[in-house]
Computed example of a mutant assay.
Amino acid sequence: MESRKVTVNNKIGLHARPAALFVQTASKFLSNISIEKAGKKVNAKSIMGIMALGVCQGDEITMFATGEDEKKAIDHLENLLINKLEEEYV
Rank of each mutant, 00 (worst) to 15 (best):
E87H: 00
V90N: 15
I74M: 03
N79R: 10
F22H: 12
G58Q: 13
K37A: 09
Y89C: 00
I61H: 10
V8H: 14
K45E: 08
Q24W: 05
A65P: 00
F29V: 08
G67D: 01
N32A: 11
I61G: 09
A16F: 01
T25K: 11
A52G: 08
R4C: 07
K5T: 12
T66I: 07
G49V: 05
E86N: 15
F64N: 12
N32W: 02
A26F: 01
M1L: 07
M63Y: 02
V6N: 13
N79E: 05
K40W: 03
F64H: 15
F64V: 02
V90I: 06
T7W: 04
I61D: 01
V23I: 05
I33K: 03
K11N: 08
V55N: 02
N83P: 04
I74D: 00
I47V: 13
G67E: 00
K28A: 13
S31C: 11
C56I: 05
S46W: 12
N10T: 13
A73Y: 00
I50S: 10
I50N: 12
F29H: 14
K45V: 02
E78V: 07
K37R: 09
E78I: 01
S46C: 12
P18H: 03
C56D: 15
A16G: 04
Y89K: 00
T66D: 15
A52S: 15
L85I: 11
K71C: 05
G49C: 05
H15I: 03
K71E: 14
K28N: 13
M51P: 05
G49K: 11
M1G: 10
A73V: 01
M63E: 06
K84M: 06
S27Y: 03
E86I: 00
E68M: 06
T25Y: 05
N32R: 11
E78N: 04
A52L: 11
E78W: 03
A73I: 01
L81I: 14
M1I: 07
T25L: 07
K41E: 12
K45P: 01
I50K: 09
T66N: 12
S27F: 02
E78G: 02
I61M: 07
M51S: 15
A20K: 13
L85K: 02
A44T: 10
V6F: 14
A16D: 10
V55I: 15
G39P: 08
A16L: 05
K5Y: 09
L80T: 13
A16H: 07
K37M: 09
T7Q: 10
A65G: 02
G67F: 01
S34E: 14
R4S: 08
K28L: 07
M63P: 00
V42H: 13
M48R: 08
N83I: 10
S3V: 03
S46E: 11
F22C: 09
